[in-house]
């Protein structure tokens, strides 16, 4: 197993409050790592540390480092880093443009001029996100007209279109109905073959369904990490057990 992303002694703060404490964590290539935990446990902070979206917050401070293929993410320029580490947000965030423009947006901005090539990317990405069959006849329609589940798969397609290596899912199904959730999870399992996936989720069952390994975060600390089956069947820590049994969170 190749180490794709490694966090070493990572500490993060927004203002004075620490949101991630002494995190040491390795994500292997081509695995789905589920991160579960109640809100305010530092899951999203860790994700946004990887693609440096935290930089948008002026109060953000960090100590320690996160590496991507052995290189500190702060040694890469943000454009390259974010191209390599795509992100799918909690709420579907289509840009206010057509379906086609949404998916083609990344490649176009990255300087691909050939319309034919972008057409190919759009089709390939929409197929990979299992949305192609539903939208192929109305690519020019506004992305805002799609249903929530379709919008979220559109966002996945948009992320795939810039050909990342890692996909960071930040509670991707929190606003979706069970059927849409199932579709998003299906695409995730399909994408695992080519990408490294980190799935932050509030939904414990979702982590148990799709992830290879699962980590449990609580109040900024990683309490436990292990193979998903082991963690769910025989958690080592009482707090993990309590959380997956639904006692708090």
């Amino acid at each position: 197993m190749v180490d794709k992303i490694v966090a070493k002694d990572l500490n993060c703060w927004y203002g004075g409050v620490p949101s991630v404490k002494n995190l040491n964590l390795t994500v292997y290539e081509n695995e789905i790592l589920g991160i579960i935990g109640p809100s305010n446990s530092g899951k999203t902070t860790f994700l946004r540390m990887i693609n440096r979206l935290n930089d948008l917050n002026y109060n953000f401070k960090k100590k320690g480092l996160v590496t991507l293929d052995g290189k500190d993410v702060y040694s890469l320029d943000t454009e390259t880093l974010r191209k390599r580490c795509g992100m799918v947000f909690a709420l579907p965030l289509p840009l206010p443009m057509s379906i086609y423009e949404n998916v083609g947006y990344g490649p176009l901005r990255h300087g691909i001029k050939s319309k034919k090539y972008i057409d190919e990317i759009v089709e390939k990405s929409l197929k990979a996100a299992s949305l192609w069959d539903e939208v192929k006849d109305r690519l020019e329609a506004s992305a805002m007209k799609l249903s929530g589940g379709q919008q979220q798969r559109l966002c996945i397609a948009r992320t795939l279109a810039v050909e990342p290596e890692v996909i960071l899912y930040d509670e991707p199904c929190s606003g979706l109905d069970p059927i849409s959730t199932a579709k998003v999870e299906e695409t995730m399992l399909e994408l695992k073959k080519k990408y490294t996936i980190i799935l932050v989720t509030n939904n414990v069952k979702q982590a148990s369904r799709v992830s290879d390994r699962t980590a449990f975060f609580l109040m900024g600390e990683m309490i436990e990490i292990g193979k998903t089956a082991d963690l769910f069947l025989a958690p080592k820590d009482k707090r993990t057990e309590g959380y997956i049994m639904g006692k708090y969170g």
Partner: peptide, 20 residues
């Protein structure tokens, strides 16, 4: 969130401002 969606694709800040 529009800015974040665009930036998360590795699109530069200026392009995000200009196009989104």
């Amino acid at each position: 969130s529009f800015r974040e969606a665009s930036l998360s694709l590795g699109v530069s800040k200026w392009q995000t401002i200009r196009h989104v």
